[in-house]
Each structure stands twice: as structure tokens, then as C-alpha cells.
Amino acid sequence: MSEQKTSKQSGAVQTTGHAWDGDIQEFNNPLPRWWLWSFYATVLFSVIYWVLFPAWPVGKTYTKGVMNDITYELNGKKVTTHWNTRALLMRDMQQGEDAVKQRKYMQKVASLSFSQVLANPEMMDFTRKVGKVLFADNCAACHGSGGQGKVGLFPNLVDDDWLWGGSISDIQATITHGRQGFMPSFRTAFTKKQLDDVVDYVLSLSGHKVDAARAARGKRIFNGQTGGCYYCHTKAGTGMKSAGSANLTDSIWTVADVNGQRDLEGKRAEVRRVILNGISRKMPAWKDRLSPVEIKLLSLYVYDLGGGKK
């Protein structure tokens, strides 16, 4: 059958003239016209491309292309350069439709005071939209996508309890420069009995029913030289903004998971753990990563999450 077909077609189509094993031959079909012309078109395209775009290496540099220059601003001066993706980006950042639109709002936010932005519904709408994206990119990894935080590690930003202050300017300072939260370990400072006493006093501050005698002794340690807890937490136990020390009198706990414990022993264990181990927490500074306007927007956004303070 195959022999028959070959002999039938051999007249119509040329063979390459090769023969293997005596009689295996190879057709020499011409390429389809459409294919051939497409091929020539790509060759022509590449020649045009070489002229218009950076293409050929020449010694230590390369041909830069013509009729394709990109103009953007660098340090206040106009720079015109050959086509390249980095210059393209600069142009997009400076002149792109979205960038221009966003910049107009950004500049307005920068020029307004916090209270002016808060009073302006259009600006607050912008703040919430941009702030949400900035928060998701930069803050949500620690503080949670809704700002709910993570007990024991990262503070909740939605409640009205603030370690470093909850006014917009406090929030702005926190984001800009970062914070270093620190409480020393009291592992060697307290005897076991002293520790139990301080734990009960600390819990009594937020209204827990504890052993009164223990708490009374704990109070003396807390406010005396042995513990010296009052240096940072104050004698009333309300904490200090300047030290980032926690208010122990409200029922909001950021490091010791007291509210997550069912019974008093569990709560005591949590407080004891924190006093024994101390705390060292760091919030990174964002001034090198975000622009001042972005930080301003984020401050407003965090303030607006619900817990902001006057």
C-alpha cells in the first residue's frame, strides 16, 4: 500500500534525493506560502525594532533606538532618555493618569491638618480607601487585617486602649519612628512568695477577686523598691504613655492573655509568666519605607478604626 502511494505521489512532489536502506525516501515539500510570508514579516519587524528600540551591543554600550524618547523629571529637572522600562516607570509615576489623580488627593491631605481631613467627608473617603490598602500591605501582617492585633504579640488597634498614646499625632509618631517596648525580667528579683503577691495585686487592679492579704503585700512590693513596678506603671497602675507601659487597671490585656483564661489560676499563671520573662517587643520604624503623606494617611486610618483618642 505504502509503495503504491509513494510511486503515485513521486511524480507530483520532489524528493530530497536521499535514500536510506535502499528505498526510504524523503519528500521535499515547499513551505506553505502564508508561513513563508509571515516569516519574512517577522524579519522585517525585527529590523524596524532594532531601529526604534535599544537593541544591539556596541563595545561597552549599545544602540539606544530613535523616535522613542521618554521625558521625566529628576530632581526638578526634565530628563529625556532613550526608551527603557525604568524611565517608563518614572514617567508613569509622574504623569500616569492614576498617579496624577492620586497625587492631587495626596497633596491635599498633606496640606490639611488632621482635624480638617477628619471634617472633610471626601478626604476621609480617600483616606479610608488608600489607608486600607496601605494598612493591608504594611501593618496587617502583625496587627491583623482589621487591626484586631494578636494577644501576646501585637497590640489591638481597634480598642481605645493605647500603650503609646491614641491621638493622631501619637499614632503618627509611632508609625514614623517605630517603638521599642521593654519590661525587664523579674526572675531573679522576686522570691516565689513575692511573685505570687505581686501577681495577685496586679490582678486586683482590674477588679479580679484575689487573696486580699497577698494583694496587700503585693501592693507594697509594686510601689516599693523591691519591685519598683510603679516606675513605669505608676502607683495607680495606669501606665505611662512615654514608656509605653500598660494600664493594668482596665481589663484589656495585650501581652498576658488574662481574658483568655477561665479560672483564676490560669490568669495568675499568665501574669506570672510575663513578670518572670519580661517583655521585649519592637515595632519597626516606617519613615524610610513610607512617605510622610502615606504615614499621615495611615495615622488617620488607624485613628479612624474606632479607638482613636482626642
Binding site: C142, S145, L153, P284
Partner: peptide, 22 residues
């Protein structure tokens, strides 16, 4: 680098969902 604290990286590497639920 510098975007998150060391503590975050440690918690996140041990169990990412402990800090980023999704």
C-alpha cells in the same frame, strides 16, 4: 528586611496562620 520585627518572623515561620489567618 526591617519591615517586620524579629518576633513576627519567628511566630510567622513557626505557624504563619498564628499571625496571618488567611
Amino acid at each position: 528586611g526591617g519591615k517586620y520585627s524579629n518576633e513576627w518572623h519567628v511566630a510567622h515561620l513557626i505557624n504563619p496562620r498564628s499571625v496571618v489567618p488567611a
